[in-house]
Write a protein that binds this DNA or RNA. Sequence first.
DNA 1: AATGAATGAGCCTTCATTCAT
DNA 2: AATGAATGAAGGCTCATTCAT
Lengths: 191, 191, 191, 191
Amino acid sequence: VTRRPSDTRDRILAAALELFAERGFHGTAVPDIARTAGVGAGSLYRHFEGKEALVNEVFRQCKRELLARVFAEGWPEGAPFRVRFHLMWSRWMGFARDNPVAMAFLELHHHQPYLDDDSRALEDTIERMVAEHVSEAQASQVLADVPADVLVALVHGSLIGLVRASRHGRVTLTDALVAETEERVWAAVRR
Amino acid sequence: VTRRPSDTRDRILAAALELFAERGFHGTAVPDIARTAGVGAGSLYRHFEGKEALVNEVFRQCKRELLARVFAEGWPEGAPFRVRFHLMWSRWMGFARDNPVAMAFLELHHHQPYLDDDSRALEDTIERMVAEHVSEAQASQVLADVPADVLVALVHGSLIGLVRASRHGRVTLTDALVAETEERVWAAVRR
Amino acid sequence: VTRRPSDTRDRILAAALELFAERGFHGTAVPDIARTAGVGAGSLYRHFEGKEALVNEVFRQCKRELLARVFAEGWPEGAPFRVRFHLMWSRWMGFARDNPVAMAFLELHHHQPYLDDDSRALEDTIERMVAEHVSEAQASQVLADVPADVLVALVHGSLIGLVRASRHGRVTLTDALVAETEERVWAAVRR
Amino acid sequence: VTRRPSDTRDRILAAALELFAERGFHGTAVPDIARTAGVGAGSLYRHFEGKEALVNEVFRQCKRELLARVFAEGWPEGAPFRVRFHLMWSRWMGFARDNPVAMAFLELHHHQPYLDDDSRALEDTIERMVAEHVSEAQASQVLADVPADVLVALVHGSLIGLVRASRHGRVTLTDALVAETEERVWAAVRR
DNA sequence: AATGAATGAGCCTTCATTCAT
DNA sequence: AATGAATGAAGGCTCATTCAT
């Protein structure tokens, strides 16, 4: 059956996201992706150069979506850092709640050797954006006087910890919890 | 060549730890492990039932070492929670600094489907130990009044975040940093 | 290269029959089967679940062909036993002459532990059919009054003995010889 | 532990006979033989050149024992053929009854490619002895006037058929049955 | 003479990729 | 554009054999 152009491509991307998130890159077989996508094994190679190109595409799509969600829509560039921190935390958590599979995928494929230059560039972009905000806030003496990367590690680590706990069903990411944890993490990083 | 008894086994375990930590379970080939260990491919199967049994053995060994380091030697069972928190944080961080490869391995193989019952039981043991301390501290109104699992996620996540940052060379785990971060994380979880 | 549908499967079956008959199950390597079939080693696994499933398929195919040859075409169910004995002997011998490889295969794989339930069921079917004829003939006092299984063993053993001798080139299965041996074996089992 | 010289060798031969008879040559692992013999894997290579030399030794031992049983003790060289036929049949059957494992081994390893020249020579010796008796009997017009090999095939096949049936529990080789079947097979081959 | 850990060739099988249809 | 049979390199594992003790 012939489908709407790019439908095939999207089905493959969705299936790949799901399986890679669940079993990792090396643990996922290309024929399995094709089957899950409901697509012939050969079709995959018309849309992607190979398995590596496919993970990278999925990776970039997830990262871009996350980036768009956190920073793009009405991001208050000049607002006080505390306000931006609030938006960042709540939107990031919102993304995690709405896209648990994408979040699991990103966690599992962070800094892996099969990620190509484009994917790494995208990772760097995000990290640089965060780092800039933090440095600027430290200059304004809003944040604790420790290396910026330490603060980033604390915040990002806490977020990942919560997301993982939610994936294992030990925590539920309600609005109240997101707000509460924001306060706690803020307490860890403020001056 | 014959070696001193159990040397072979240890060499295999060391090589497996290294490669699994670097490339993951499915990304590591058994012949590569053997070659890294400087051992014939078949020797692996005299000491372990297979690749899966091998990861599990490595996993358990790492977990046990971590457990021993954090809780075993002179653990002050009755001391105030803040004291125990200090020990836990500094020892755990010390383990991470001394065994970065083991730490990376544990991070990568957390809750994977090829872990067997024994490995899972060991994971549970550690989680339960931590959870007990936290619950007890909450009962004494030392810790914030949020679900215990949330506090655990914040602390564990922060620790992992720092370790990962140190692995990427963005942070150096000096004694001062360990002490400083302990204070910050404590600020996030205390009442 | 792509072939006409199911050609690959048939080529594999033919090669497997040949090699299994010559070297036995454990003595035959899957890559050898593939090479003999003029097919990639992986193709075997698209058509059969594995080496064991393959022997079983070959086994069943041989048994079914033998069964069809001996009993199916115009088998005179009500005729006197001597007539049926004649048909059975001559057709079975005919099968052996026309399919010496299949016959060797069946001889070698009789009652082996890697045969599955379906294959065993087929073996039983044939044995039961033979046993029924014999019992009925004994009831009519045509056959000697010894356990039916003894008569079956004498006839089947004689047949196998002749087939094996013909395989070793010590005997040639001419029509005259088939007729002659039928008389001799009949002399052994008649009342 | 050190054993009586040649005890080790005998234990290995016994274990090899048992396993080879059960699983065939290629289906039997050398370490299994050693374990069954209660002997170190290396010891096997002090007594036999390798796996092939071992099967051949077992083969020859079985054949020699059979030969001794049938022809050696008080064989009446000049007696009428019917008498010799009686002795041959009953002694051969006796051997099968007393050494079912050896019999199964011989059946399974008949004419296999890993048998060496010595083993083949031994097979030929027996066949030649039988053939000589038969030819001589045919010259005296005691036996049917068909190629000697046909008669041999009928007798040997019947014997194998009965032995196999007894192994599968469908027949019991009592003295009465041996006598009865001797008469029937004789009926098949006599003039 | 006996042992059994060590070895590596070779086995069965999987899977990323190709290509005729 | 889509398919899926075919491929063969590579993976996990076994086992006949060796050799230091």
